[in-house]
Design a protein around this nucleic acid. Sequence first.
RNA 1: GGAGAGAUGGCUGAGCGGACGAAAGCGCCGGUCUCGAAAACCGGUAUACGGGCAACUGUAUCGUGGGUUCGAAUCCCACUCUCUCCGCCA
Length: 423
Amino acid sequence: MISIELIRRDPDQVRRALAARGEEDPLAQLLDIDAQRRSAQTEGGDLRAQRNRVSKEVGQARQLGQEPAQEVVQEMRQVGEKITELEQQDQALEEQINEILLGLPNLPLDGVPKGEGEEDNIVTRSWGEVPSLDFTRVPHWELGETLGLIDFQRGVKVAGSRFFTMTGMGAKLNRALISWMLDLHVSEHGYTEVTLPLMVKKESMLGSGNLPKFADNLYHDDEDDLWLIPTAEVPITNLHRDEILSASQLPLKYVAHTPCFRREKAAAGRDTRGIKRVHQFDKVEMYQLVAPENSADELEKLVDNAEDVCRKLELPYRVLQLCTGDLGFASAMTYDIEVWAAGCQEWLEVSSCSNCTDFQARRTNLRYRPQDSRPQLVHTLNGSGLALPRVIIAILENYQQPDGSVVIPEVLRPYTGFDVITA
RNA sequence: GGAGAGAUGGCUGAGCGGACGAAAGCGCCGGUCUCGAAAACCGGUAUACGGGCAACUGUAUCGUGGGUUCGAAUCCCACUCUCUCCGCCA
């Protein structure tokens, strides 16, 4: 949620920022409702002050054995009714304001390149050598099957399209990657591991920004009104909801492995082959709560933590800075990391690292107390570290040998227990 | 799922419908004392919104929502959550 104070103070700045994202501008309406609400609040406050004063006098008179005048009681009864009426108005207006605010995306930070979509993203750096084409590499959906690692048909039989299963060494490789990534982030990058609920309440989805706008992308259980998480970012964002943290607790750095559940409704028909885009996948997610003045620097470090995973796996990658038009809803600045997949010959997004500034903190009422000062909203950052299926694609396709076997990246071997996968 | 108990500030915990944003203790911050510290003593310690340059001031907040009343932490109703016991269960 963006700040209503900012909208009041500098609506033009907000307008420009929303325009850069290609958003419509509901500010005129919003400001109008806000003005109505504030006047209802002021009037209500004055009436309450009056009622408090008179009620106190009535009480004191009673103590002295004097009955209050009938018309005073009558008048206060009417004041009470007016107060109730104004309260209801205030509530209704607040709901309208919230509805609008909850639907507005975060404002891009100053350094974010202007642009309309994917094509305007900027490659900021790249690392590693794209494997040479000395032999034709088989895409992972073929190789995964011939090596007995991935079983597409049975996944579909059990759960439907866009589901898959992994067996034997494939399942082990997946598990090894999870363990290794978690260990790396905990022991070398200073994160604390958490395990999390995979289903959350509506409030939690509102807090992270997935609701109300993106209900279509989420799985929902009607009976208990629970939502399946599309990323660990959702439960972690809500871990410290309604808390005031002390300055010394920051930065709080969490890492978690969770399955992620996505309906992929918007992407119907796209990437249907293989495991690039599926309804359920594993992901290791990094998340930080930081003081506002540090969030820009911390984002750079967070991206490096994710890049470190790629470097240690020796997967060639590039880092993109997303333009204003391609930013996610909650993000003020985002870097994507893409690894090269030598079989399907494309760059695969394996991580998206975002600075959400105070957008999620405002929704979750998550503050900290700077030294000797009033509580302030924290800034939140999130980044994949990394998404599993696409890393597996890259390993199968880049580490593929001419004979069809796959060599396991050095760092993973202690975790897999094998060095090579052969047919 | 059944029965019972409960929900008050950072924590523990008082609170006959009016003097209660709320006792007391702990914690925390500042001060006195000390070479320094501890102890002791003194003082200060919620949040949000509105008004004011400011000192300050108004309003709201005692799990949530409704109701009764001139007036609700306190009375009534509903809900949520927590704990204990029973049942079921990986």
